[in-house]
Amino acid sequence: MEAFQVTANDKISQEQRQSSSHSSNSKQAAKPRRVRRSPNDNPMIAETTFTEGKGVAYTRWGRFDCSGPNNDLVYDGIAAGSHYSNTGGVSDFLCLHLNVSYRNGRFRDGSQGGSHTYGLEYQDSWISSLMDFSLIETHSTYQHSVPCAVCLAERRTTQLMIPGRVTCPQGWTREYTGYVMAGGHSDKHATSPICVDDTPQVVPGTQGSQPGAHLYMVETQCASLLCEPYAAGREISCVVCTL
């Protein structure tokens, strides 16, 4: 009988240790984990910390700020892209940081080969009836440089731009509405479309044509598109949503 009690007590003690070890491992697994690829790797490069994401980032084109109470401004900047007359280069527009910094290195003359980046300018002069210009003194965006802002939508995991809509799917949060814009159809290279805020701002002191990257409204054309619900020559609205 005494031997049985000792064996039972040992079993209980072992189960308690296993339970304690499992609990400890669960707590440890819940903490950020640090992983090193190789003992010989540089620890500044090889170590990766896994933490829960804070939110999702998106670019608000045409504004220096972010919308919504749960949005943080990561940085603001000036939109840029390849020259409209270039046959190659950058197809996606860039949001360049206002406080630009250059790494130490060898600087080359601008005539050397490579991809060149220019400021992005609004080129449509007739859109005053579509936009809300209450935030700019000139009440026009024509031939002004385009501002941009990179925003962080907190506690969300994905973002989506929907062309042809001003509302978001059920359960999604609307960040801003605008119009789809891209380079001109006669430009020498294609550009990816962006959703430009319908309450736009401009970069101060940039009025007047400075040849570079151009930005125009995108319009629908039928009958290649169905003439119902689409209509020829109509500007395409857009909305940026997060979830």
Rank of each mutant, 00 (worst) to 15 (best):
C95W: 02
F64L: 05
H97V: 08
G113P: 04
S82F: 02
C148L: 04
I45N: 11
C95P: 02
G62P: 01
D132A: 11
R60L: 11
E154T: 06
L94K: 08
D41H: 12
G113Q: 15
N71T: 08
E47S: 09
D124G: 13
Y102A: 06
N40T: 08
N86L: 08
E52A: 02
R103S: 15
T157E: 04
Y122E: 06
V90H: 15
Q123D: 02
Y84E: 11
C66A: 04
D92Y: 10
T138W: 04
L135A: 02
C95A: 13
D124V: 07
S129K: 15
Q123T: 10
A153Q: 11
A80L: 03
V150P: 05
Y75I: 12
V100H: 03
P147A: 10
I136E: 01
V146T: 02
Y118S: 06
R37V: 07
G77S: 07
V74W: 01
S129M: 09
Q112G: 08
P147T: 05
V150N: 15
W126S: 10
G113D: 09
P39N: 10
T138K: 10
S111A: 12
N70R: 11
F93M: 11
P39F: 06
S85M: 00
I136M: 08
K54M: 13
C95F: 05
P147N: 04
F107Y: 09
A46M: 10
D41S: 14
G77Q: 03
R106Y: 14
L73G: 07
I136Q: 03
R108S: 13
T141H: 06
T48D: 08
R156H: 14
S145M: 07
D109V: 11
D65F: 11
K54P: 01
F64K: 08
Q112I: 15
H97I: 00
F50Q: 12
D72P: 00
F93W: 15
A149D: 04
S38A: 13
W61M: 05
H116L: 13
V90Y: 12
G110T: 05
G114V: 11
V150Y: 12
D132E: 03
M131L: 13
Y118R: 02
F50A: 10
F50Y: 13
F50S: 10
T48Y: 13
T48C: 12
T59F: 01
L98P: 00
L73N: 03
G53E: 11
L73Q: 09
R156I: 03
H97T: 08
H83L: 08
T49Q: 14
H139Y: 10
A80H: 03
H83V: 01
E154L: 07
D92F: 13
K54Q: 05
W61C: 06
R155T: 04
E154M: 05
G62V: 03
Y122I: 01
E47G: 05
A153F: 02
Y102Q: 07
F64Y: 06
H139G: 01
A79Q: 09
L152W: 12
C95D: 04
H116K: 11
D72M: 12
F93D: 01
N70L: 11
A80S: 05
S85V: 09
E121G: 02
